[in-house]
């Protein structure tokens, strides 16, 4: 098993004793060229980029990402165009770790094996599939096991409890901890057992533990910063990009600040 870009980045951060910054953007919002520039602008600040593949029925996303998906589809975004974007980035020499966050139907529709092969070739380092729980992952994992270029990131939630050891047994890259129960970006309050939950995941996990859902800045994670290995910013990042007219400079400025503040 060789390390892929995400795993190498995790090793690098560990060696430097630094925390990861992971951002989410919707591919093709407002267009594929802008998405590419927003990715490139985060070089050096963002550890891993989550590229959302827009889907018509994003059941695990809150209103901000739902709207982003809807607009991106209206503007012509698709999986095929996102693959082209990835190929372009890698051709230009980008070594930024990038993963796709997407719904399972988009993969099934493309064909699981063909999809994985294309991910390997296009330099897609990982996948997050929020509607594909552990019990349903066999087909996808079997296709991914053919090589190490693309890995599946596992999600756990505060109600996963007894499921966590099984989910983490073969998990690679990092583990994505959902902290507000349920969908992305809506809750401003902490889950009542957040600290216990993150500690229990951290105790079991052999790989870095990232906290996602609803985070805006370093202050939001201050109480648990000694437990977690990094943060994931989704809805807030989309909002701030939108306010800045999707200017890549805003992505650069925000990620530089966040990266500095959590370290």
């Amino acid at each position: 098993m060789s390390l892929n870009r995400i795993e190498k980045k995790m090793e690098e951060l560990k060696a430097q004793n630094k925390k990861a910054v992971i951002t989410y953007i919707t591919a093709g919002l407002p267009n594929m060229d802008a998405t590419k520039e927003i990715i490139k602008a985060q070089e050096g600040n963002t550890s891993v980029i989550e590229l959302g593949i827009p889907f018509s029925d994003p059941i695990a996303d809150g209103p901000v990402i739902q709207q982003a998906s809807y607009e991106a589809i209206q503007a012509g975004a698709s999986l095929k165009k996102t693959f082209a974007l990835m190929e372009g980035l890698r051709k230009e020499g980008s070594e930024q770790p990038i993963l796709f966050m997407m719904y399972y139907n988009t993969i099934v529709n493309y064909g699981i094996n063909a999809f994985v092969k294309k991910c390997n070739e296009a330099g897609v380092d990982g996948l997050i599939v929020p509607d594909l729980p552990f019990e349903e992952q066999d087909d996808l994992l079997k296709a991914l096991e053919q090589n190490d270029a693309t890995i599946l990131i596992q999600l756990v939630s505060p109600v996963s409890k007894n499921r966590i050891p099984g989910i983490l047994e073969k998990a690679r890259g990092f583990v994505y901890c959902v902290w507000a129960m349920g969908v992305t970006g809506q809750s401003g309050s902490f889950h009542r057992e957040i600290i216990d939950y993150l500690s229990s995941v951290k105790n079991i996990s052999k790989i870095p533990v990232m906290m996602g859902f609803g985070i805006r800045d370093a202050k939001d994670v201050e109480p648990m910063k000694d437990i977690i290995d990094g943060v994931i910013v989704g809805s807030h990042f989309i909002n701030l990009l939108r306010e800045a007219g999707f200017n890549p400079a805003a992505a650069k400025e925000y990620t530089a600040k966040l990266s500095k503040e959590i370290n």
Partner: peptide, 12 residues
């Protein structure tokens, strides 16, 4: 068939 839901619903 199957259970294609988020992890947070699996125990439910």
């Amino acid at each position: 068939g199957g259970q294609f839901v988020s992890e947070s619903l699996m125990n439910t």
